[in-house]
Design a protein around this nucleic acid. Structure first.
Lengths: 231, 231
DNA sequence: GGGCGCCTGTGGTCGGACCACACGGTAGTG
DNA sequence: CACTACCGTGTGGTCCGACCACAGGCGCCC
């Protein structure tokens, strides 16, 4: 009574090994041929299973021989989330506005957990990114640094899930944001406003006023999104 | 110069059709054999691509013939998110505590957007679920209704992304929550406390006090999580 | 002892084959 | 004429065997 679909049996087997702790990040899976023989399924089914785990960011496959070859357990959460988000946004089943609003919830929520002044050295990377944005010559480079800036601040909260999620949400709508950035002829003025808000955000965190930072972040993101017609 | 991996070419082709609007939810994909021939790849590669899209919740495959058979475009966001989350939590790369904290951010954020009293009829389902929890005979049925209750309230905010995300986050740690629910011999007392907090939450929303609801939700979730040693 | 080349095992791809299934038209039946 | 039973057809699901490119490790040769 092994009625389940073969490729699901493979996934279940690997998942069970992960759950039991027999497999952890960095370990190598059995070879596709060995897995197929042990589980009594065809190699095609094993491949579909591994391909699935690969798109979920659980496995990385490499050809060749030696310790680095074969299927290796990784843990790249963003990989799966981002591709899933991108596709569903394309199908219009996830409104861009809702993604922006969700991003505000996550980011503001992360800042709201801050109750102690954040030491300056932990904000060094954020300050550097502000400088990078000041020196940026066009929307693309500014946007790129802006992405890293916000991610850096959320990482300070120590919530890995929120950070991953934020990164995926932004990646999914990156195309829309970049498009509206490029289409505005006043991007220089926009950049000045955004930078002012970035500095206010950092100042609030340095002061340990998470609530103020949360409010600033919400205004910052929603204000830009309105201007970009993303809401 | 079609150097890309064959299965990626298939995904790109389908994704392009979605982006351009040529394919929308409910449409049927070409048959695997037709797709393979048109793109000049083997059917195995097409299958890996479709299996990937299937795990991302973009496609549903059925055997047989007729309009309902074949690969049909759907949009089940939770499917991909939930399986990805579950696996990464199992690999210990996503701490359960961070998932709980992220859930608080989403739920509190959704309530915080409420500024008008919520009409009683829109809360009817929530009231019904409170009754269900009152009448529940054990942890499992209570937990099940609790899940639906919180999801129902977040859906009131109209943010589909937040609702999907909440649902996925809870599904990913459902096992841990259920386990700690079962292991407590005082689940009756816990239920009473939780129900009291549920009523306070609904009352705050009925009063249109989103801020109060957000605070109540945060205390409610974090309080239970602490008791269940999930933080 | 050091450098070079073969040998092995890996994932990646392909083609063909068979199966179970569900639909749709068709032939047979009342 | 209406209804039913049947079979043909196209679908995804699975399996098998084959070949390829690649990377590492081994042993041979210099």
């Amino acid at each position: 009574m092994t009625s389940a679909q073969p490729y699901l049996r493979v996934i279940d087997d690997i998942e069970a090994s992960i759950m039991s702790g027999a497999l952890t990040v960095g370990d190598r899976l059995e070879s596709e041929r060995a897995l197929a023989e042990r589980l009594g399924v065809s190699r095609s089914s094993v491949r579909e299973a591994i391909r699935t785990l690969s798109t979920l960011g659980v496995v990385r496959s490499s050809v060749g021989s030696g310790p680095q070859a074969g299927a290796i357990l990784i843990s790249d959460v963003e990989l799966g989330w981002t591709s899933a988000l991108r596709l569903h946004v394309a199908m219009r089943s996830l409104p861009v506005g809702d993604i922006v609003r969700t991003r505000v919830m996550l980011e503001a929520g992360a800042y709201r957990d801050v109750h102690q002044p954040v030491p300056r050295e932990r904000l060094a990377a954020a300050h550097d990114l502000i400088d990078v944005m000041d020196a940026s010559q066009g929307p693309q480079s500014f946007h790129h640094a802006d992405l890293a800036f916000h991610l850096e601040l959320v990482k300070l909260s120590g919530n890995t899930v929120a950070a991953m999620l934020l990164s995926s949400l932004r990646a999914a709508i990156e195309g829309y944001v970049a498009a509206s950035f490029d289409s505005r002829d006043d991007w220089g003025d926009v950049a000045v406003t955004l930078q002012c808000e970035h500095r206010e955000l950092v100042a609030a965190l340095e002061a340990g006023d998470g609530e103020r930072a949360a409010g600033a972040a919400a205004r910052h993101i929603l204000g830009f999104a309105r201007g970009a017609a993303l809401l």
